[in-house]
Simulated scan of single mutants.
Amino acid sequence: MSALPSIPQSWRRIVLLLPVIVVALGFTTGFFGSSLKPKLPKVVFEPESPPGPFHRECKTANESSRLDELSDVIRALWAPLVLPVTEPTFTTLDGDKKHLPPTEQLIHTKSLGKRICILDVDTRGLSGDGDVFGSHLPTWGNLAFSSAGFLSHYLYAQIHGYTYKFVRAPTYHDRAPHWTKVIFTQELLKRYDIVVMLDYDAMFPSPELPLEWLLNYWKIDREVMVAMAEDPDVDVNLDLRGKINVNTGFIIAQSSENTQRLFKDWAECPDETRYKGCARWKREAFHEQAAFSSHVRYDFLDGLSVETHPQYIRVLPCAEANGIPEKRHLGCMGQLVRHYWGDKTLTNRELSQIVMRAFTPLLTSAAYSSQEVVEDYRTHALEGDKILDQS
């Protein structure tokens, strides 16, 4: 294993997908037979409009999907499964059918590609056995719970051609590490149209569903600066005014001067230059989440409130964007985005299900859909050592 340190980190993180790569390459090289060789689509993501002032550095993807990188393999593998951005309906894993607004009300009609950034922020070393930055590649048997979540985020970004960033953040000297997600989401918004920040235990259970579809479904237009899910309706999750907290484990943020101002005020909340009483959340739970829920959302952009101007801060339903099926009794089952605060050990299970749901039908097709593999004698009869043709 002495050669592992020389392997790029981006390859080490996705080692769990090696079986998928083998099958995908088998398809493209004819290993499974030319009759089963799929026609890989030319996957091209064009920008919806010229980049704005906050994302001049953003690179758009205009390249064909030649299988010269792992990301191309992933995108080709999932391409038949990806839901169109304008698909009228989607059925969740629990059978609930979701409907988009009428066509004329849709916000996005094509992918934003690299202008969307899927973001992980973490202050830990993550260098132990099973961690994504460990000296040895993780195995499925020792994969850390956090690694499963991070890998699912990377996979989601690759499926849809989004940018993926992992920020290894420094810590504040005076507050909990959770606060770093605020400042680095703000920083990445200077480069990308949309930044989706996820805690490691927040995952997309149906990665074939594009973010643009979710934006259409939740009606997150350009006026919306930030969107977060509501927490379960229990006493511990109430803010200082008795309103249910929003959960900062899944944040959709859109670039604008107003969004920059919002995140600046949020990051500076514990300094109490604007929000009196916010210093308590430097280390007291729920840290940046409590600061936003109890202070920022009631006074942003010079006196606006989520109650008077809800169009700027979108609160997403807990049932759709928070929780897990095991916590459905709290009203939060994670239909579209799951958050495993109820049992973080289940992130490994979620990653395996995500991969195998895509891999299983392709494997089945490769194995059993070709006459070169399957010889069908069901119309014949057997007599002694003879196979008789009854036709």
Rank of each mutant, 00 (worst) to 15 (best):
M1N: 12
S2I: 10
P8E: 04
W11V: 14
R13C: 10
R13K: 14
I14H: 03
I14S: 09
V15Y: 05
L16I: 15
L17T: 13
L25K: 09
T29H: 07
F32E: 05
G33T: 06
K37E: 11
P38E: 08
P41M: 13
P41E: 13
V44Y: 02
E46I: 08
P47Y: 06
G52C: 12
P53C: 06
F54R: 13
A61K: 12
R66C: 11
D68F: 14
L70N: 06
A76V: 15
L77N: 01
V82K: 04
T86Q: 09
F90V: 00
D94S: 13
G95Y: 09
G95M: 06
I107V: 13
K110C: 02
K110T: 07
G113K: 02
G113V: 11
K114M: 12
R115L: 10
R115F: 12
D120F: 05
S127W: 04
F133C: 09
P138G: 09
G141C: 08
A144N: 11
S146K: 07
S146G: 06
A148L: 05
L151R: 01
L151F: 08
H153D: 05
I159H: 01
K165N: 07
F166I: 06
V167Y: 05
A169P: 04
A169V: 08
A169F: 11
D174S: 12
A176T: 03
P177T: 09
H178R: 11
F184W: 15
Q186I: 00
Q186C: 11
L189T: 02
I194N: 01
A202Y: 02
F204C: 02
F204Q: 02
P210M: 03
P210T: 01
I220D: 00
R222Q: 15
M228A: 14
A229L: 01
D233F: 14
V236P: 02
D239I: 00
K243N: 13
N245C: 10
N247I: 05
G249A: 10
F250R: 03
I251A: 04
I252W: 00
A253M: 05
Q260T: 06
R274K: 15
R274W: 11
A279F: 02
R280K: 14
R283L: 13
F286K: 04
A290P: 02
S293W: 01
H295E: 09
R297I: 09
Y298T: 07
G303R: 04
G303N: 04
E307Y: 13
E307C: 10
E307N: 11
T308P: 03
T308A: 15
H309S: 15
A321Q: 01
K327F: 13
K327G: 06
H329L: 07
H329S: 12
L330W: 11
M333Q: 12
V337N: 04
R338W: 05
W341A: 03
D343R: 09
T345N: 09
T347E: 03
E350Q: 14
L351C: 07
M356V: 07
T364W: 09
A367F: 14
Y368R: 10
Y368C: 08
S370C: 12
E375V: 15
Y377Q: 05
R378L: 08
T379V: 10
T379W: 08
L382S: 07
E383P: 04
D385I: 10
K386A: 15
K386N: 13
I387M: 14
L388Y: 08
Q390E: 13
